[in-house]
Each structure stands twice: as C-alpha cells, then as structure tokens.
Amino acid sequence: MNRYGLIVILMSLAACSGTRNYSDGEAFRADSRHSRDFSVAPDPVCEAARRVLLRDGYIVQPGAGERLIGVKEFQVDENQQAQLRLYVNCSARTAGSTLFVTATEEHFDIKTSRKSTSVGIPLLFPISVSNSSEVDAQVKVRGEMVRDKGFYERFYRGVNQELAR
C-alpha cells in the first residue's frame, strides 16, 4: 500500500471517531413540517390547535402568550412508557398568522438500582451488619424529534377543521 492510501485510510478513521456534533448540520432553512400560514388572527388559530389537542386526548399545558404544550402518554409495556409532546406557537403576520409546531417522542423505562453495604470484622468479631436497598426509577432511554411529515399534516388538517366550525 502506498503512502497516500495509508493517509486516506487514517483520515477516514479519524473522521468517523468521536461524538457527533448535531449543531454542525443545522442550516436554519424553513421546513414545511413545522409551520403553516393561516389567513386568520393568531388567537383563533391557537384556540383551534388547543381544541385539536384536547379532542385527541392530549393534556394541554398553557404557555406564555400564544404558546401551548400538548402531552400524551402511552404505556408500551409493564415497565416502558412513551410520551408525545407538541410545542405550538402562534405568531401574527401581515395577512393572518403562522402556526409553528414541533413534536418530540420520548421513551422511558423503569430501572432498578440496588445498593448493599456490609460492615464487620470477621476474624475478630464474627458478627457483621449489612444493609441493602432497591430503588426503582423512571429513566429516559430515548428521545427524538418527530420527523414524519404525515403526523404534522394530520395536525394542520385538524386545525383547519376546527377553524371551519
């Protein structure tokens, strides 16, 4: 193998190692999944979004101004739970409003932590004192932004239906 081939292989390995820096991929381009323009004022659009979330079983946490957070939980199995969160912002624009929506899906699992302690001197004093405990805790095992365009389209369709009522 020649010297240049070895350099290319070493550079490739170096590029693949290390942690991924997600901020490098951010271009801040508009993405139709996350915003939709409406020809009505922000207040009715935000109210329609709130009703869509409530109608679908989300718990809606009011935010400051024209912001909402909708949360819905799903029991995956005995120890696992998933949670969908929708972050909704209504913003005024010249000829109406824009609805911004981002959704995240997070998964949680029950993890058991065991701790035991034993104190004693077996050769001199044959009695020892021990203590053990188990604690169950809910731990986030995965989380990511929802990228499915169909998910967002269904939400916007629901907002349009609510506005038409």
Rank of each mutant, 00 (worst) to 15 (best):
M1H: 12
L6Q: 12
I7G: 08
V8M: 15
I9C: 08
L13K: 11
A15H: 14
R20T: 15
N21V: 09
N21G: 09
Y22R: 12
Y22I: 08
S23I: 11
G25E: 08
E26N: 14
E26I: 13
E26F: 13
A27Y: 12
A27Q: 12
A30F: 11
D31A: 10
S32G: 09
H34F: 14
H34P: 02
R36D: 03
D37M: 11
F38T: 02
F38K: 00
S39W: 05
V40E: 08
V40R: 07
V40D: 04
A41T: 05
D43T: 12
V45R: 00
V45H: 02
V45D: 01
C46G: 10
A48P: 04
A49N: 01
L53R: 00
L54V: 07
R55W: 06
R55P: 01
R55M: 10
D56P: 05
D56Q: 07
G57F: 02
I59F: 13
V60K: 01
Q61A: 10
Q61R: 14
P62G: 11
G63Y: 06
A64M: 09
I69N: 07
I69R: 14
I69F: 07
G70C: 05
K72R: 13
E73M: 12
F74V: 08
F74M: 06
E78Q: 14
Q80Y: 07
Q81E: 09
A82Y: 01
A82V: 04
A82F: 04
R85E: 03
Y87P: 03
Y87W: 10
V88F: 04
S91Q: 13
R93A: 11
R93P: 01
T94P: 02
G96A: 05
G96S: 03
T98I: 04
L99V: 01
L99I: 00
V101M: 02
T102G: 04
T104H: 10
E105F: 10
E106N: 12
E106M: 10
F108K: 00
F108Y: 15
D109A: 13
T112E: 11
S116W: 08
T117M: 11
S118Y: 07
S118H: 10
S118I: 12
V119C: 08
G120Q: 03
G120F: 03
I121E: 05
P122G: 05
P122S: 06
L124T: 04
L124C: 07
L124S: 08
V129W: 11
S132I: 05
S133R: 15
E134L: 10
D136Y: 12
A137Y: 05
A137K: 15
V139W: 05
V139L: 06
V139R: 03
K140P: 03
K140H: 00
K140F: 05
V141Q: 08
V141N: 01
V141T: 14
V141P: 06
E144G: 14
M145F: 09
M145P: 02
V146Y: 03
R147H: 06
R147Q: 11
R147Y: 06
K149V: 06
K149A: 12
R154D: 02
R154T: 04
F155Y: 02
F155N: 01
R157P: 04
R157G: 06
N160K: 12
N160C: 03
Q161L: 08
Q161P: 00
Q161D: 07
E162K: 05
L163H: 00
R165S: 13
R165Q: 14
